[in-house]
Amino acid sequence: MTDTPEIKPFEPTIIGFTCNWCSYRAADMAGISRMKYAPNVRLIRLMCSGRLDPMFVIKAFAGGADAVLVSGCHPGDCHYSTQNYKAMRRFHLLKRVLVQMGIEPGRLKLLWASAAEGAIFAAEVSKFVEEVRALGPLNWNGPIPATAYKSVKEEVPA
C-alpha cells in the first residue's frame, strides 16, 4: 500500500442555456423518465434560444464555467417560428470569437432537443461533460494560434 493521496478526477462546471419550450422540457422529460446523466451542468431557462446574448456566454466563462451548453428547439420547430436560427447564427460567430480569445471551441456546444427527447438530452450532456473533462479546466492563457481556427468548422448539429 502506498501513501499516494487519491487524485480526484477533474469535475467541470458547465452552464447550460435552454429554451422554455423544447430543451428545458427535454430536461424535464429526462427527469420524469429518471434518465441519469452527469451532474456538472447547471441550467438557465430562457424563453427562446434566440434570447441568448453572447454576453451571457462570455460572462459564464469569466465567472468560472469550464464550458457552456446552448440548447434550443430543432430547426423548424421553434415556438417563435425561426428564432433558433438566429441563435445558431450567433453560436457560430461566437465560437470564432471565443477561439480568438483563447477558449477552445470544444467548450461551447449547441444542442437541439425537442420536448420529447429527454434521452437525447441526457446522453448529450453526459457526452459533453466527458469532452470537457478531457479538455481540463478552463485555462485562459491568451489567444490560441491561428491553426486552431480549422477546428471551428464543425458540422452544424441537425
Binding site: 438557465i44 430562457l46 451571457f56 460572462k59 459564464a60 465567472g63 468560472g64 464555467a65
Partner: peptide, 14 residues
Amino acid sequence: QILSQIDGLLFLNI
C-alpha cells in the same frame, strides 16, 4: 436577472 443567475450558479465554484 440572467447575468446574476450565472453568477449565482457559479458561486460555489468561485
